[in-house]
Design a protein around this nucleic acid. Structure first.
Lengths: 150, 150
DNA sequence: ACATTAATGTCAGGCCCCTGATAATGTCAA
DNA sequence: TTGACATTATCAGGGGCCTGACATTAATGT
C-alpha cells in the first residue's frame, strides 16, 4: 500500500480516517456516559434540541440534526414510546405535530447535557485553548470544502 | 442563540458538533462519488482492506474497521451476495473463512480508491500542508484522550 | 378561484452498526 | 489427556440512517 509517497503531507494516512476514529471513540465514550439515562447519543441530541426549542416540528428537528424527516420520525416514535416526549397536533397549522419533553424527558436532557459536556472536556483535555479554536476552524473549513451547494 | 459567551474558546459550539458535520458531508460526497460503482462508503472501505490484505478473515476485517465481527459479518454477506467477494474455508485452520475479491470486487476497489482520494483532496483543498498535518495531529490527540484503555 | 408548488408527516424496505447468545475450533496449562 | 480459555463464525433482534413513495395541508402564482 502506498509505497513511499513522501511528497507533500500524506504521512500516516488520510484525514478521513482520523475523523472516523475520533468520532467513533467520541460515540463510545458518550454511550458509556449516558448508560444510566436510558437514551443513546443520537436520542440525547434530539432531546437537547427539543429542550432548546419547545413545540418544534419533526421536519425542523430533522433539519437541525442533518438527517432526513424519515430518520427523525423513527427516533421520535421510539422516544414517545419510551415516555421521553409527547407529540400533539398544532392548534392552528393542521399538519404540523408539536414535539415536547415529558418530565422524564427533561430529566434525561439535563443529565445528557452534563454527560455531553464531560465527554467534550475529556476529548479536549490535551489541547490548549488556541489549539481547540484552531481545530474547530479547520473542521469548519473541511466541511465547507465538502459542501454540495457552496 | 448563544448570546455572547466570549469567555475562553467556546465560540460557536462544540468540537463534537463540528466533527459530526465534517464526517456527515464526507460521507455524502463519497456516496455521490461512488454512485456508479454500486458500493457504499462502508463497503468500499472493506473492499480496500481486502485488496490490501488478501485471504483475510472476518474477525481481522472487523478489527481493522473498528466494528464488531457481527457487523462485518453482515457486510460480507451483502458483498458476497452482490458478487464483489468470495469466501472459502481456510485449508488448514478449519474455522477461519478466507475472504477474497472477485474480478468485480477488484474493479470496484480500484474505482473506490480513486473516489476516496478525490474526496479527500476536495476536503483538504482549502488547507495548507502544514494545516493538514496539524489537523491530523489534533484529531489523533483527541482520539487518544477518549481512548478507553489508555 | 384555481392550479401549481412547497412543506409536512408517514409507511415500507434496505444498509450499517450494536448487544446478546450459540456453536465450533484452536491454544495452552495443569 | 483433559479442562479452561480465547478465537472465529454465525443467528436473532434492535437502533439509527438512508431512499422511494404517498397523502395531506399550506403557500403561492396566475
Amino acid at each position: 500500500m502506498s509505497m513511499s509517497k513522501m511528497n507533500t503531507s500524506d504521512e500516516e494516512g488520510w484525514i478521513g480516517y482520523g475523523l472516523k476514529i475520533a468520532q467513533h471513540r467520541l460515540r463510545l465514550r458518550l454511550e458509556a456516559e449516558l448508560a444510566g439515562t436510558g437514551v443513546s447519543p443520537s436520542q440525547n441530541a434530539v432531546l437537547l434540541a427539543i429542550a432548546d426549542n419547545p413545540r418544534i416540528s419533526n421536519a425542523s428537528l430533522a433539519r437541525a440534526a442533518f438527517v432526513t424527516p424519515q430518520s427523525m420520525q423513527g427516533m421520535l416514535v421510539t422516544l414517545e414510546r419510551d415516555g421521553f416526549i409527547v407529540r400533539t397536533p398544532h392548534p392552528e397549522h393542521g399538519r404540523i405535530i408539536m414535539t415536547e419533553l415529558t418530565e422524564a424527558g427533561r430529566t434525561a436532557a439535563q443529565a445528557g447535557m452534563i454527560a455531553a459536556e464531560a465527554v467534550e472536556r475529556q476529548m479536549l483535555a490535551g489541547l490548549t485553548d488556541d489549539e481547540t479554536k484552531l481545530l474547530r476552524e479547520l473542521l469548519r473549513r473541511c466541511a465547507d470544502a465538502l459542501d454540495s451547494d457552496n
